[in-house]
């Protein structure tokens, strides 16, 4: 019996199967590419080959695309990323006191004391220091993102780059390139700049105590990992499933919830990977708010709406209601 966890993020969609003793038995990392439903569908199609609907005991979703994914697959719980990441981190390592999570579009810090989240923060208006920014810079420098970290470790003298704003960091970096600094040193400098930016923006005023876990897609980047250790003067641990921690947390939360409420899962089954999912958006003209409403269609049939402020569409009941807690 497995718990299915899905984390629909801006850059990647992660799907995991967690068994009853908390082990990750299956893990998929799919690029979202701006089409969350297609990413979820293709992930489920892979699992369908190996697993049976009856083996899935509970389903949890998280990430910025959790609303749409919950409607699509029939989730038992749709939880925010912070709670999901914290739950997974505590399960992995009960000693954890600080979680640094850097994903595609946002970065967070979660402070945990005695197994309880006591404080957290997310980046506010700037996405500097997140995965998509690094992706973009790797592309500029024509280096595969997978090797980005190795390049950074080669840096002899990391160049100082302004890290406060993604746009300015980029122009600063271009200037340094024009002046002929080595690519290694520029990348090393970029990693340091991002860590500085993170610590002074997101982690501002927080007490970072060991043990520190570093998770999210960016944790794969050895350069950033090393820059964190240097800056914090602490060992920073990257858990084995660092890239899918949100999905693991969602799976754990879903299992806990169903056990507590003694309910059956709402999972629609792996057959959803055969269905055709589309979404269409329109502007409601009911009032001057002009909400941008999104309608999710399964085989041309509307299965859910969201995006309206008044609940005119939101509250319509469907056969597969998603549970938001």
């Amino acid at each position: 019996m497995y718990a299915l966890g899905v984390d629909v993020g801006s850059v990647s969609t992660n799907i995991v199967l967690v068994d009853n003793s908390g082990n990750v038995v299956e893990k998929l990392y799919i690029r979202t590419k701006g089409r969350p439903m297609e990413a979820v569908r293709s992930g489920l199609a892979v699992l369908k080959e190996k697993y049976d609907d009856r083996q899935i005991q509970s389903v949890g979703v998280t990430g910025s695309g959790r609303m749409i994914a919950a409607i699509q697959i029939g989730a038992d719980i749709a939880k925010n990323e912070i709670t999901a990441h914290a739950v997974a981190a505590i399960q992995m390592d009960p000693e954890v006191k600080t979680v640094v999570e850097i994903g595609g579009q946002d970065s967070k810090i979660i402070i945990i004391r005695n197994g309880i989240v006591t404080d957290f923060a997310m980046n506010t208006v700037c996405a500097a220091g997140t995965g998509s920014f690094l992706d973009r810079q790797a592309e500029r420098l024509e280096i595969p993102i997978e090797q980005f970290g190795d390049y950074a470790l080669e840096a002899a003298v990391p160049v100082r780059i302004a890290g406060r704003c993604a746009v300015f960091a980029e122009s600063d970096m271009i200037h340094k390139q024009q002046l002929g600094y080595a690519a290694f040193d520029i990348i090393g400098g970029l990693c340091e700049a991002l860590v500085r930016n993170y610590l002074s923006n997101v982690a501002k005023g927080k007490e970072l105590l060991p043990k520190v876990l570093f998770q999210g897609g960016v944790a794969a980047n050895k350069g950033i990992h090393k820059a964190f250790e240097n800056e914090l003067q602490l060992p920073v641990f990257v858990p084995p499933h660092y890239d899918v921690m949100g999905a693991i947390g969602a799976a754990i939360l879903a299992r806990e919830k169903l056990e507590r409420e003694k309910k059956k899962t709402m999972f629609k089954g792996f057959s959803v990977s055969d269905a055709e999912f589309k979404s269409r958006s329109f502007i409601c003209s009911g009032c001057p708010n002009r909400c941008e409403v999104v309608c999710v269609l399964e085989n041309q049939k509307a299965i859910g709406y969201f995006g309206d402020r008044c609940g005119k569409y939101n509250n319509r009941s469907f056969s597969s209601p998603a549970v938001y807690v």
Partner: peptide, 9 residues
């Protein structure tokens, strides 16, 4: 996300 996580906390 922020409000939900805050309430959870």
């Amino acid at each position: 996300t922020r409000v939900e996580a805050f309430i959870d906390m």
